[in-house]
Design a protein around this nucleic acid. Structure first.
Length: 477
DNA sequence: ATGTCC
C-alpha cells in the first residue's frame, strides 16, 4: 500500500479534526485530531495511522491525538479499537515498549509560599533518594522473586498492603490500582530478571518527578472535586514499567510475528505484528501486559511513598493522591458501535483514557466531573490537568503530552547546556538531573508546545482543561 | 521507552 503526501490529502471535517480517506487495504478511515501546525513533518506518522487502519477487526477509525509522532508500528498518540468477537486483533506495537507508562499527581496541603524555604532541602533529599537513569536501581530492596510475582498480580494494592501507601490511594488509581487479569506465567524469566531490581525507579528520557505549582484553574468545580486550587503545591510523577515492560513487549512482538501467518494475517509493516484477541498468543500478550500494567502502577506507588516521607519529615507537608492514569495500555472495554454495544480491545499508545462525567468506573467524589487526565509537559514549561467530557470521541481518549520534534541527537547539537542551565535558574526552577547531557536532550525546544496540544484536544471535543501547573523543581534521569 | 546491539 503506497499512500503519497497524506498531509496534502487530509480532509478537514471539523474543528481540529482531519480525515484520511479509506482506500486500498484500509478497513476504516483515519481520523486525526490536530491543527495544521501540529501536523508539520507528520507525514511518516500519518502513514502509520493509515497502516493501523488495515488491522483485522478494527472498528470506526484509526485515530490519532494532537501529539501524534512516529512510533514503533503504531504512531505515538494513536488509538485503535478492534472488535473482540469479530476476529479483532491485539498488537503489542499498539501499546508500545513502555507498557503502563503513566502519570500520577499528588496534591500538597500547602501553597508555594509556604514551601519556599523548605524547597531546596526537599530537592536535595529527593536527589539522594529517587533512583533514576538507565539500568538497575529501585526503592524496594531487598525484593524477592515471590514478591515480584505478588506485585505483578496485585499492582498498587500489593504495594499499599505492604505499607507503601494509604488505602485511599487505591480509590484514586485507574482500576483501583490493579488489573485482575495478569498472567504471570506469560512473563519471561528475562523480564522478571530485569524487573526485580527496578521497583520504585523513574528511568530516563522524558520520565520525571516534579514539584509543581497550580498556576491557573480553568474549571473551579472540577478542580475543587479533584482537590487542587490555584497556588497549591503538587507533585507529578511520570514513569512506566522499566525493563520489565520493555522485555515483555520484545518477547510478545517476536511470538506474534512468528504466529501471524497461521491466522492468515498480513500487515503492511512487521512492527504491527498482531494475532486475534481470542488466540493463545493474544491472550498470552494481554496477560503479560496486565502484569506490566500492575508493575507500572506499583512503581509509581513506591515513588509516591518515598516522596511523601521526604515532604513529611523535611517540611511537615502531607501529599494526597489526585489520580493515577496510564497512557500506554490496551483494554477490553464495551462501547457503542453503529448502535450496538460491542466488546472492543482499545489500544491507547501515547493517548489517555478520558471517561466522561457519570461513568460508573469513576470514584464517587469525581464521578460528576469526569475522569482526571494528567498531561506531563516538558521541563520549564507547563503540565495540565484535563477531564473527560460527555460524548468524548475516539472511545473516550485524549492526548498524553507534548511529543518530540527534535531527535535527541539534534537537541544535543542545537541546545547549549550552559544556556539551558541559565534559563532554568532565571525561571526559578530547581533541577536535580542525573546527567546534564540527559537534561539537555529533554529541553523544551525539543518538544511540541504542550499548550497547543491541549488546546487542540479541547477544541476537538476530546476533553476539557481544568488546570495548568508549572514546575518549581525537577528530578530527572 | 530501553542493561540506547545477544
Amino acid at each position: 500500500m503506497k499512500l503519497v503526501e497524506l498531509v496534502d490529502e487530509l480532509v478537514e471535517e471539523g474543528p481540529y479534526r482531519f480525515r484520511i480517506e479509506q482506500r486500498d487495504e484500509m478497513r476504516v478511515p483515519g481520523v486525526v485530531f490536530a491543527s495544521r501546525g501540529l501536523l508539520r513533518d507528520a507525514e511518516q506518522s500519518l502513514q502509520q495511522v493509515a497502516n493501523v487502519a488495515t488491522l483485522p477487526g478494527i472498528v470506526v477509525a484509526s485515530y490519532a491525538m494532537p501529539d501524534i509522532h512516529w512510533g514503533y508500528g503504531f504512531p505515538i498518540g494513536g488509538v485503535a479499537a478492534t472488535d473482540v468477537d469479530e476476529g479483532g486483533v491485539v498488537s503489542p506495537g499498539g501499546v508500545g515498549f513502555d507498557i503502563s507508562c503513566g502519570v500520577r499527581l499528588l496534591a500538597a496541603d500547602c501553597d508555594r509560599e509556604e514551601l519556599r524555604s523548605a524547597l531546596p532541602a526537599i530537592m536535595d533529599a529527593l536527589d539522594r533518594a529517587i533512583p533514576r537513569g538507565a539500568g538497575p536501581g529501585g526503592l524496594w530492596r531487598p525484593f524477592t522473586r515471590r514478591q515480584l510475582e505478588r506485585l505483578l498480580e496485585g499492582g498498587s494494592r500489593y504495594a499499599v498492603a505492604e505499607g507503601h501507601g494509604e488505602e485511599r490511594d487505591l480509590t484514586r488509581c485507574e482500576d483501583g490500582g490493579a488489573v485482575a487479569d495478569a498472567d504471570i506465567t506469560q512473563v519471561s524469566e528475562r523480564a522478571r530478571e530485569r524487573g526485580l531490581g527496578q521497583v520504585g525507579s523513574l528511568g530516563s528520557a522524558n520520565h520525571f518527578l516534579e514539584i509543581q505549582e497550580v498556576a491557573e484553574v480553568y474549571d473551579e468545580p472540577a478542580a475543587n472535586a479533584f482537590g487542587i486550587a490555584r497556588g497549591q503545591v503538587c507533585v507529578m510523577i511520570h514513569c512506566g514499567s522499566r525493563g520489565l515492560g520493555h522485555q515483555i513487549c520484545t518477547d510478545h512482538v517476536r511470538a506474534m510475528d512468528q504466529a501471524m501467518a497461521r491466522y492468515g494475517i498480513t500487515v503492511p509493516d512487521r512492527q504491527l505484528a498482531c494475532t486475534p484477541v481470542h488466540s493463545p498468543e493474544g491472550q498470552a500478550y494481554l496477560g503479560a501486559m496486565a502484569a506490566a500494567a500492575n508493575y507500572g502502577r506499583a512503581n509509581r506507588q513506591l515513588l509516591s511513598d518515598m516522596t511523601r516521607r521526604i515532604f513529611r519529615r523535611t517540611a511537615d507537608v502531607r501529599l494526597s493522591l489526585v489520580y493515577d492514569v496510564s497512557h500506554n495500555l490496551a483494554k477490553i472495554e464495551t462501547h457503542e458501535v453503529n448502535g450496538t454495544h460491542r466488546r472492543l480491545c482499545v489500544h491507547r499508545k501515547g493517548a489517555t483514557r478520558a471517561f466522561p462525567p457519570g461513568h460508573p468506573e469513576l470514584p464517587q467524589p469525581l464521578r460528576k466531573f469526569g475522569q482526571p487526565v494528567l498531561i506531563p509537559g516538558t521541563m520549564g514549561t507547563a503540565s495540565y490537568v484535563l477531564t473527560g467530557v460527555p460524548g468524548g470521541d475516539a472511545f473516550h481518549s485524549t492526548c498524553h503530552g507534548a511529543g518530540r520534534t527534535l531527535s535527541r541527537h539534534r537537541a544535543l547539537r542545537t541546545i547549549a547546556t550552559e544556556d539551558l542551565r541559565a534559563r532554568l535558574k532565571r525561571d526559578g526552577i530547581a533541577v536535580r538531573p542525573l546527567s546534564w547531557r540527559g537534561l539537555t536532550e529533554e529541553a523544551p525546544e525539543a518538544y511540541k508546545d504542550v499548550s497547543a496540544v491541549v488546546a487542540a484536544s479541547e477544541g476537538a471535543g476530546l476533553c476539557r482543561t481544568v488546570a495548568r501547573l508549572v514546575p518549581l523543581g525537577v528530578v530527572k534521569g
